[in-house]
Design a binder for these strands. Structure first.
Length: 819
RNA sequence: GCGGCUGUGGUGGAAUUGGUAGACACGCAGGCUUCAGGUGCCUGUGGGCUUUACGCUCGUGGAGGUUCGAGUCCUCUCAGCCGCACCA
């Protein structure tokens, strides 16, 4: 056959990409035009090297949603930007001497070009990069807003320090005691750092999860991370030293079962308690040992309990008992008050410790088997406690005991969170400068708003030295105090890159605003993001921080929403031979190699066809070829039909072959629409278009359909395919109809073609399919029953037996129950 | 340990509320086209059994249960993945 009908993505794709770029097809105005808005957002990429296969997947999903919504009549915002600050670019600079800005800008150029080559329908007029002063000027402005309202503060704290990257880390960036970035073991250091007061928002971050449509597992991860525990704070008094020690407990009902008291090794009072006593040396040795132990060693769950007696006692406020005090590393300074009451009968850790140190174990909640042998953590009535509470179910006793503590001034109901404040300062170069000036006289002084941005200066040496490399930029560091005019120094720490990405979705709405971070009226028109799409790896960090920023900015009057992302979709990973792609495994596949070989349409379509997009999927080279063949078949048939037939309409009088084509076409419209609207079932949507294409192919070979019906079926296939493979779909559609498919409304199924006069009635005997017969749509139950019973293969299984029951499901099946 | 997810042919997966298990695709086998390879197209393809009938039977990790009917619901259990984890 002539070359004319060879599917050539290398010709088709650039041709349409040029049209979209020249006509700025995907740009959208901020001015309302009567259409409802839809903000479709894919998490912005971190530009490093070239896009990988995960980028192809996530942007293919986002683009399909954007196209679908546009053609459904929505005004769609689908922007793109780059999360451009961060350690990889800086580490690259340290090893090569190349300025991080240069390597970052090169990566951005590569990303931008590939997104174009993939045919993504992005509104490029709103493109942003977080390392651009016109962007981070407003990151600094937000920092100052939070600072001025007490939500950003500086304090000395025991922080996680990565000795390799020479920087502090957020709690969230420490995985199993190791640096998330480089994997090096993390140390604890006492340093003065900047924090955001995210803990103030713990309850709202928790409660508002109920208001958003997110995958349950992501919500669960956030709930666990916030880690809200309800209980009571109870005060234990050390009478010898006249000090009160409050503890947090979720089980105040077990207060009468407390038999000892434990402090964390980091607790500031440990040394004071033992000072000058015979226990001093042992306590010091123990604490030093515990603090030198790595987090990993200390955190091992199966590790034996250790600790030492401090020679002191505290008084249990509920019964006046004197409890011996210990220091033990199973108590954590960073949770609760750094000290606990120990109830070995009803807490496994305390039980283990008590066994090891021969401490008494007193049952106060009945229901366990033998608390001497094993802690009982279940429910039950109180025993061995106090006549006022004994016999009460422990839940009820808990309430009553807390009320009693409150009346006596010995405690009160309390809530504790696992969530810590967000440590945002980094002693690194390639980040957004913190707009603060330290003045000897005035202390911490914010940079005046009109002086923003504080531009990141160029420096010669990026290597980390335990303080920010920026400190070396003397000209930049030394300034006059904006408050008193005296000598002062700039803050040299930079911000965690998660600060940059915690508000970028707001900037897209008003990306060129030089007067403000955004115009509140414009932001109102677009926010919240209707569909956010990205990887689960951001389930905690980015998604929690962005929610916190949104709430804080709303409280400060800059936003009118409480949640930034109304719906969230998290896509699964693409694996290769069942394993995560990595350079060390050597199983990395480059999306570009497939785009060059098969075209972007094939690569995009395959990645959506491979399986449900929220699940992990294994890349298969032969699978790609299957999709390529399908696209080629659809294009070739469209081109041939367009060239060899006239512009005939679908005829009034339909032949049986025409009817089959129209039915399949309308069935596919219905199927694809439902698969895209209700869930992101792109794989079954594409399968439906394949079925339609196969039907067309079969009709052309074997049937005698009218050219009108043929054109309609093919144009429908192209139209439905457009969100997944925009170039080939556009080209095929234009050949068939002379029109541009993206300007066409999304097709709607004509239900007349979906309803049939007859259908295949499944005939079962005892739940087993025995026959299938044609039944008239709308036939009565009696008719269906008779039809089934008269079927020959049904009779073979029914004759000679008693019919016990007949179940009729109209439009589906009849089940005859025999004995 | 706690929480979440997944388990279906040789492979990826389909089956939206309990109602024909295996759509669609890959792979494989056979055929057509071709000097040949490739491309393209057609046919077949869960296992077993036999009387080869489009017939029976088994079959959705395993074992029970509910139901006329279970991949789908319930109970128990196994395997794998992810998150959190000495959080009081």
């Amino acid at each position: 056959m002539a070359d004319r009908y060879r599917y050539d993505p290398k010709e088709i794709e650039p041709r349409w990409q040029r049209v979209w770029a020249d006509e700025r097809t995907w740009e959208v105005s901020n001015e309302p035009d009567g259409r409802e808005k839809a903000y479709v957002l894919v998490m912005l990429p971190y530009p490093s090297g070239e896009p990988h296969i995960g980028h192809l997947k996530v942007y293919s999903v986002g683009d399909a949603v954007a196209h679908f919504r546009r053609r459904q009549g929505f005004r769609v915002l689908n922007p793109m930007g780059y999360d451009a600050f961060g350690l990889p670019a800086e580490n690259h600079a340290i090893s090569t001497g190349q300025h991080p800005r240069q390597s970052t800008d090169e990566a951005i150029a590569a990303f931008r070009q590939q997104f174009h080559e993939w045919g993504m329908s992005i509104d490029w007029s709103r493109e942003l990069a977080t390392h651009d002063p016109s962007y981070y000027r407003w990151t600094q402005w937000i920092f100052l807003q939070l600072f001025e309202h007490g939500l950003a503060y500086r304090k000395e704290a025991a922080v996680k320090w990565c000795p390799n990257d020479q920087t502090v880390l957020a709690n969230e960036q420490v995985i199993d005691g190791r640096c998330e970035r480089c994997g090096h073991e993390v140390e604890v250091r006492q340093l003065e750092q900047w924090f955001f007061r995210i803990t103030d928002y713990a309850d709202r971050l928790l409660d508002d999860l109920d208001t958003i449509e997110w995958p349950e597992h992501v919500k669960t991860m956030q709930r666990n991370w916030i880690g809200r525990s309800e209980g009571a704070e109870v005060v234990f008094r050390c009478e010898e030293l006249d000090i009160d020690y409050p503890v947090f407990t979720t089980r105040p009902d077990t207060l009468f079962g407390a038999t000892f008291f434990v402090m964390a090794p980091e607790h500031p009072d440990v040394f004071r308690l033992v000072a000058g006593t015979e226990y001093e040396q042992a306590a010091h040795e123990y604490v030093n040992h515990a603090l030198n132990e790595s987090n990993e060693e200390r955190g091992a769950a199966d590790k034996e309990k250790t600790g030492v007696f401090l020679g002191r006692y505290v008084v249990n406020p509920v019964n006046g008992e004197r409890l011996p005090m210990y220091v033990a590393d199973y108590v954590l300074m960073e949770y609760g008050t750094g000290a606990i009451m120990a109830v070995p009968a009803h807490d496994e850790r305390d039980h283990e410790f008590a066994k090891r140190f021969g401490l008494p174990i007193r049952e106060v909640v009945a229901g366990g088997e033998d608390v001497q042998a094993q802690a009982y953590t279940g429910e039950g009535p109180l025993v061995n406690s106090h006549p006022d509470f004994d016999g009460l179910p422990n839940r009820e006793a808990l309430q009553r005991i807390v009320e009693w503590l409150d009346r006596e001034g010995k405690g009160h109901a309390s809530v504790n969170y696992r969530l810590r404040d967000w440590l945002l300062s980094r002693q690194r170069y390639w980040g957004c400068p913190i707009p603060i000036i330290h003045c000897e006289r005035c202390g911490i002084v914010p940079v005046p708003e009109e002086d923003l941005p504080v531009v990141l200066p160029d420096i010669a040496d990026y290597a980390p030295k335990g303080r920010s490399p920026l400190a070396a930029a003397e000209d930049w560091v030394n300034v006059t105090c904006p408050s008193c005019g005296g000598p002062a120094r700039r803050e040299t720490d930079t911000m965690d890159t998660f600060v940059d990405s915690s508000w970028y979705f707001l900037r897209y709405t008003d990306a060129h605003n030089d007067e403000a971070a955004w115009d509140p009226a414009v932001v109102d028109r677009w926010m919240p993001v209707d569909q956010y799409i990205g990887g689960v790896e951001h389930a905690i960090l980015h998604l929690m921080y962005a929610r916190f920023f949104t709430k804080a900015l709303a409280d400060l009057g800059h936003l009118n929403i409480q949640e930034p992302f109304a719906r969230l979709f998290t896509q699964g990973m693409i694996t290769r031979s069942g394993a995560k792609m990595s350079k060390s495994r050597g199983n990395v596949i480059s999306p570009q190699s497939y785009v060059e070989r098969y075209g972007a349409d094939t690569a995009r379509c395959y990645i959506l066809f491979i399986g449900p997009p929220d699940q992990d999927a294994d890349w298969s080279d032969t699978g790609v070829e299957g999709v390529h063949r399908f696209l080629g078949r659809l294009w070739r048939m469209s081109a041939e039909v367009a060239d060899t037939t006239g512009d005939e309409p679908v005829p009034e009088e339909l032949s049986a072959d025409d009817l089959e084509l129209l039915r399949k076409a309308h069935w596919a419209i219905e199927k694809v629409t439902n698969d895209m609207a209700g869930r992101f079932a792109f794989n079954t949507a594409i399968a439906a278009i394949m079925e339609l294409t196969n039907t067309v192919s079969k009709q052309r070979e074997e049937g005698d359909p009218s050219t009108g019906a043929l054109r309609f079926a093919l144009a429908t296939a192209a139209s439905l395919l457009f969100p997944f493979a925009p170039h080939v779909a556009t080209d095929a559609y234009e050949r068939l109809t002379g029109r541009r498919v993206w300007e066409e409304p999304w097709p709607t199924a004509d239900h007349r073609y979906l309803e049939r006069e007859t259908y295949e009635l499944v005939c079962q005997v005892n739940g087993k399919v025995r026959d299938r017969v044609q039944a008239a749509t709308g036939a009565s139950r009696e008719e269906l029953e008779a039809l089934c019973l008269s079927a020959s293969r049904v009779r073979a299984h029914v004759d000679g037996k008693d019919v016990v029951k007949v179940v009729v499901v109209p439009e589906r099946l009849v089940n005859v129950v025999v004995r």
